[in-house]
Design a protein around this nucleic acid. Structure first.
Lengths: 339, 339
DNA sequence: CAATTCTGCTTCATCGATTGAGCAAGCGAG
DNA sequence: CTCGCTTGCTCAATCGATGAAGCAGAATTG
């Protein structure tokens, strides 16, 4: 049963010979437009049966090479290590498949160079459209796509060259901060500024969330403590180190925190546990992102969950409609019920 | 700047014309074997420069069509909603890219039909090799691949037609069960059978883990309570419902549980919280899988983490070496330190 | 100086599917 | 019986890259 010579794949020419007909008839039958090409249903049936019997599989490379559109759609994503990106990818695949598109995905691990390389690779594979998710430099990717005449859409982080779909970070952060401030006031009886930790100060999402954070403080009549705004990056270690440094600097530790992603929360929680600073009283947390186990961590954590289904619907609406106006669509995130 | 006619892509023929040479020279230069083909370095340089200037990108579809091997490697994965599969996919991409292979991944959401369809789609794209991860029917996929002369490897769940890489489920479950039994005995002073929940009784992993679970009970001289073995599927809702049904049936609730994946744990935790049955004393848990936030849930949870890096190294070792003996490689999982 | 080798290319068939153009047979109308 | 139309196909070019085979002209050898 073992053969070192790989079974030569069946082609339309093989089928044509078997059916005593031409390759073009076979092609027409197998890609469904045999009616347009006036092939008799008898021949169509015969060819279909033969294809089945021979285990024929279309050679996409050949097909795509010849066709105008490839029906391949690409997505670039930073990581697979959290629920947010996980559900983005899963949803993306489902919606693509629904439309008869073939999804290909690349994880760039937040590496800007890999991001560009991945975009180029996707173009080489003739994607019809590329979705850049959480890209560090979405405009660069958009430029590369535009040079190849390929449509692009930004997701999660906005760009200025192609349409973008993002969460309403300001509104989400505003509400989240409000809640944490209220929780703190309820428990400790006084208003005090919160800590903001995680994210890159230069990225749109983080700056919008900081803006919401500030707005909520202003609303409550609390002055933001600038030494407590730690946009140190997303990685757990970075958040952990930033917390450590912060604790050494400030007099009294904040009683409430705004954590900018579950990834950063991992580091924050680690620090809280290891440092022992909060052994007496657990701080109130707000996390911009959702995770089922974080939700179980206790009722001192509020979460804002980005609305992935609506975000991806918006992405595909742009793709389906062929729209290319440079709008940024903001999807309101969902404030999770605690408890 | 907006053009409805997509910029015609530069091809090697365009470059050839610009360089006043032939397409085959361009091809030789751009795919790096111009020395073999005795192209002068002057011409090589000129072509390289032109390619750069014109933003030339290889058409992979054309290239793959012509070549013997596609250098595309496929992976089928059930879900993206947990750390285990997330890191599998991330690692897979990294290792593939390291080898100059182009990874394509499809998420089947545990749907057997989609699994087959996805495998066929990958074959249509001429993958050189397909990794079936956690497939419900790995042998079916292996057969489809073999008919096309494509190599396959099973990951996470073993099959009988191609090599497999899995966790040492028995050993992991044995150790995990031991620990939970010990934790229960320490706290409650008596030995009592644990609950097993999650997974499909028919899948290899689950049955091996149940075997480990039983072996640990036997070792401790505790009889397994058969009404407490709930292989109800992985989904959170299934685990939750199984717990509910179990609670209505048994007299005293188990004080310790073996939970077969973080996914199932989600349902178990939900039930524990909602039912209120464990309001007085938290049960001791063992989870076969790892998640950072589960680890933070408390010191009453033990976890076994599957060794994804080693598993994928093993997969690529099989691929690199071209081995096709039907062995099942078992990778010992890592017992996480609690606290 | 003729014979050979080497250099640096070009030519052309090929991979498999797609599709516009075209062709032969059949049929109905005039 | 002929013209025109329909039916049911086939032919051949094409997509872009690849590489075996071949071919001038220069360089080297005996």
């Amino acid at each position: 049963m073992k053969r070192s010579i790989p079974t030569k794949r069946t082609t339309i020419y093989d089928l044509a010979e078997l059916a005593g007909t031409s390759a073009s008839a076979v092609s027409a039958v197998l890609n469904g437009n045999w009616k347009k090409r006036r092939i008799s249903s008898q021949l169509a049936e015969k060819i279909t049966r033969l294809a089945e019997e021979q285990g024929y599989a279309l050679n996409m490379q050949a097909s795509v090479l010849r066709r105008e559109r490839s029906k391949i759609i690409g997505m670039i994503v930073p990581k697979y290590d959290n629920r947010y990106f996980g559900s983005i990818v899963e949803q993306f695949e489902a919606l693509a498949r629904e439309r008869g598109l073939f999804p290909i995905i690349t994880c760039t691990r937040r590496d800007p160079a890999l991001e560009i390389e991945a975009a180029r690779a996707m173009l080489s594979y003739q994607v019809d459209c590329l979705i850049a998710t959480g890209a560090t430099d979405p405009d660069r990717i958009a430029d590369i796509c535009s040079a190849a005449g390929v449509r692009a859409v930004n997701l999660d982080l906005p760009g200025s060259r192609v349409p973008s779909v993002i969460s309403d970070n300001f509104a989400g952060a505003l509400e989240l901060t409000r809640r944490v401030l209220a929780n703190c006031e309820r428990e400790f009886g006084e208003k005090a500024p919160l800590l903001f930790v995680g994210g890159r100060g230069t990225d749109h999402n983080t700056s919008e969330r900081v803006r919401g954070f500030r707005a909520a403080h202003a609303e409550a009549g609390v002055a933001v403590d600038e030494t407590l705004v730690l946009t140190c990056g997303y990685a757990p270690e970075k958040a952990e180190n930033a917390m450590k440094a912060m604790a050494e600097k400030v007099g009294t530790l904040p009683r409430g925190m705004f954590v900018n992603s579950t990834i950063s929360l991992e580091g924050v929680m680690r620090w809280i546990r290891r440092s022992g600073h909060y052994a007496d009283r657990i701080p109130h947390l707000g996390c911009f992102d959702w995770d089922p186990f974080v939700a179980m961590l206790g009722d001192h954590i509020e979460m804002v969950r980005q609305d992935v289904p609506r975000m991806l619907d918006a992405v595909f609406e742009i793709i389906d409609s062929g729209a290319s106006d440079l709008k940024v669509i903001q999807i309101p995130p969902i404030v999770e019920q605690t408890g």
